[in-house]
Write a protein that binds this DNA or RNA. Structure first.
Lengths: 337, 337
DNA sequence: AGTGACGATGTGACCGTGCACATACAAGGA
DNA sequence: TCCTTGTATGTGCACGGTCACATCGTCACT
């Protein structure tokens, strides 16, 4: 056990100044590489810094500048594959730019919970917030909240007022559905995500658009909860129906569960029914049958979010990203009718 | 766009003091609920706080106390299911205790990278660090580094000097292997994780222990990289061999890939070969065939880590947790010989 | 030669807390 | 009555940076 009480004070900017024979302000200038510093002076200071193993105190800096060099992540996801992958992208991009990252997981999406979370991050003096709250309700709460801080919202409704960012879910879902149509299927049903989720709505819209355009009948979508367990349940239920030959499922987890349900009920994939998922989780390429799905680059989404956020913070021109492209990955689970 | 320049100064402790008609120190005492405060005075102060919507400046507090009420997470995992789940547990538990969480993802586990990461977190004044660096090398780097800060290491070697914490990997692997032995298998091979990973070693040891105890032949383990893609590759290679009837795989991702490789090569699971995985990822119960595997409670692991860390920070008695139990989940992929 | 602009550096105040110490008053014991 | 003890509160400084402003020398231009 180290004696914390006798721990020597960390060297401060003034200690460095003394050793280098300059004023503390000069040291500060070197640290923030200010223009007017003689190279010779700079060298002396850097030397002293190295000798003392000095490192600036971020709290002190945050206090005086009211900036923390910290970004907040507000996540309201139960551990979905997509958002989690995006978070990794956010963290990496932020660290690269010299920002640290404080993450806050939300279990409920009530206005109070979201409000508290935002307040908490504000107290931590984060300079900006990336919101991963893919629920419609959360989106509206945020919209009505007028967050007094730069913030970016991931995977939310496109075309909205605030700065948002997402892969083109509608187009991806449309491509997936068109793929099934191209295989000769005309009776295609959809297992959607929870009603409250924006992505669920977008994917459903893409599905409906594709069917409408091809003049095919649409079916009332089945509402799931993203879990494989629900997919299994749906598979067992659907096995009683014989009015469809293909299913477009709003995410891979449910799709994998669905195939399991079908299997247990004696429905063969893809011989009897074709299945297409969404997200391209790592095991999608290996389940039996391998799952056709829509791939999207979640980490890239996170990286873009950081770039937009930092531009906002620094008052620079905010880069315009087109919607991120999705890619259809055709595998065994979808076959000609 | 809000005019940030004209943004009013946030109310400080002195503003509250003025409004309440007390000194700033009295306000400070109320905030830290100090003992000697008249209830009447306290009420006045709380009132003023509410009126001004005052919220303490954490940076100022951190500056003067040298404590940040922030925990750091140092993660050196490429997005594995387990560690990611643990992180969620850590964050929740920390927030519950009033701590915020700063996460730092590491791509490399070189001593320099780890050192830099620790230094970075130290600069951020985190009060303690949870390390998720399941690699043997990282473990040794940390050990030799004498981190001058409370820290806890997750899923590392048990029985080591520092405070570490993990589910009982050896026992879990042993149970899984014994399960296969119990089904009548006597030629059981093992697909292990990367050589550098502690969990990979533990699971391998459990496998070897079980076989040795049952006086069965052991095979040199095959070294994988945790990915489903590797599992697929291994499945194709192994299909040429006929000297085994069961495989214990160090994680589910590889196990699922393995079954895919077998399938493509005409090897049937479980008729020809039984397979058991490790981790119980959400889709394990739904792939075809459903995967027998070893379940462990990752979030609980994270929660325990936080409890230990906070005890250390506060100088309280550090709670002793036994190794976390694992549970065997028997499913279709393992069958009697 | 006088003057202004600019480059390089120093001086002191300030950010918003908590801590050590001082103070004022009331209660209790010698 | 005086002194001790304890409770409730106030005073000033320190934490480690940055910012605004002052200072001083050099150089170019009139």
């Amino acid at each position: 056990m180290s004696t914390a009480s006798e721990r020597a004070r960390m060297p401060s900017i003034r200690d460095v100044a003394r050793l280098a024979g300059v004023s503390h302000q000069t040291v500060s200038r070197v640290l923030n590489d200010h223009a007017s510093i003689r190279p010779e002076t700079k060298a002396k200071v850097l030397d002293a810094i190295a000798v003392l193993d000095y490192r600036p105190n971020l709290a002190a800096r945050a206090l005086v500048t009211s900036k923390s060099n910290m970004l907040g992540i507000l996540a309201a996801t139960v551990g979905e594959f997509g958002p989690t992958s995006s978070i990794v992208g956010i963290e990496d991009a932020a660290r690269e730019e010299g920002y640290s990252v404080s993450t806050l997981n939300l279990s409920a999406t009530t206005p109070e919970a979201i409000g508290n979370a935002l307040r908490q991050l504000a107290r931590e003096q984060v300079d900006g917030i990336v919101v991963l709250a893919p629920q419609v309700r959360a989106f509206h709460v945020l919209k009505g909240m007028a967050v007094e801080m730069p913030f970016v919202s991931l995977q939310t409704a496109s075309g909205s007022d605030g700065v948002t960012l997402s892969a083109d879910q509608v187009a991806g879902a449309r491509t997936a559905t068109e793929h099934l149509i191209g295989l000769g299927h005309s009776d295609i049903i959809h297992i959607a995500g929870p009603q409250d989720w924006i992505e669920a709505e977008s994917r459903m819209r893409g599905y409906l658009d594709a069917l409408r355009e091809a003049d095919l009948p649409t079916f009332p979508p089945i509402r799931g909860d993203w879990t494989a367990d629900f997919g299994y349940f749906a598979g067992q239920e659907l096995s009683r129906r014989r009015d469809f030959t293909a299913v477009f499922v709003a995410n891979d987890q449910m799709a994998i569960g669905l195939m399991h349900g079908f299997r247990d009920a004696g429905v063969r994939v893809p011989e009897d029914v074709s299945v297409v998922g969404f997200d391209d989780i790592p095991v999608a390429a290996h389940v039996a049958p391998t799952l056709s799905t829509v791939h999207q680059d979640f980490p890239e989404l996170g990286r873009r979010a950081v770039r937009i956020l930092l531009a906002q913070i620094r008052g620079e021109q905010v880069p315009e990203f087109g919607p991120l492209q999705t890619t259809l990955r055709t595998r065994e689970s979808s076959a000609p009718r």
